[in-house]
Simulated scan of single mutants.
Amino acid sequence: MSDAPLLPLKPEGPARTPGQRAVRPKSAATVMIIRRDAARPRVLMGRRHGGHSFMPDRWVFPGGRIDRADYRAPFATDLKPDTAALFDAYLKPGKGRALALAAIRETWEEAGLLLARRAPLRPAAGPWRPFVEQGALPDLEALEVIARAVTPPSVGKRFDTWFLMADAERLASLDRQPDCGELEEIAWVEFEEAMDLPLPTVTRLMIKEAQARMEDPSRPKPFLRYKDRSAGRPAYL
């Protein structure tokens, strides 16, 4: 166990209806893609639509909920052994890979960027069809787990989110598809500038975590959970 500091998170999103049982968190994954081709590193971020009930107009990393199709999606490279082992320590077999695939799929759907390797065209259906039609398959080897956070029970929409990180050099291209779906605006933002944006609390913490991890890759990976509306229960993966 390390003594790396963690800041408490505060609940965000629509509150749970009084008397309603706590909502079961939905499995999700998001990826911080780091670009290092300038004087200072930049991270890919997007602004959520103002009409969303969950974190409207906030700047976030691309990502989203796991889909059943993510369990059977094709890929060019598999997870690194240490990454796979970390997922397997907490999840049912195959779910970690599906979460990683979900993060890559959502990056394509929301930001128009392929974290992938070029591959021959092949048949595909469902949400993976537009991705595979680009002549590319997911590059799971590019991903590293940096943290996990579970939304507190007091919130009406809850997520059990795995935060991943990848280098922008693993993108098939820096040229993105113009139609970026859910995210209203996409930008490569320096870490210091990102902190001035309207961010969810957990996103702000993950930016700090990414900065620290770039300096010390061996630092422990936070696992943030909650007992109630006021108290966090920080631990490490």
Rank of each mutant, 00 (worst) to 15 (best):
R122E: 12
F191M: 02
R72E: 11
P123L: 05
L86F: 01
R117A: 05
G50C: 09
Q211D: 10
P130I: 05
A187W: 03
Q20F: 01
P56W: 14
T77S: 10
S154A: 15
R24G: 03
P18W: 00
R35L: 02
R47L: 11
G63H: 08
G46P: 11
M45H: 07
K10H: 14
P8I: 06
R225P: 03
A187C: 01
L140N: 04
T161H: 04
P8R: 03
A235Y: 04
I146M: 15
R72M: 07
D179C: 09
E192F: 00
S154E: 13
A231W: 10
W128E: 10
A172E: 10
M206Y: 11
E144A: 10
A85F: 01
A4I: 09
Q134P: 03
P198F: 13
P138K: 02
T151S: 15
Y71V: 04
E193H: 13
G51S: 05
E215M: 12
F61K: 02
D179M: 10
D228W: 03
A212M: 07
R21N: 10
L164G: 04
T17L: 09
D196Y: 02
F87T: 02
G112D: 05
L183H: 06
K10Q: 12
V189K: 01
A231K: 08
L143F: 02
A89I: 00
R148F: 12
P130H: 09
G135L: 02
E190C: 01
D67Q: 15
R105I: 06
A84L: 09
A103F: 04
T151F: 11
K80L: 12
A119E: 11
P8F: 04
A103R: 01
G64Q: 11
L115I: 07
I33A: 06
L137D: 09
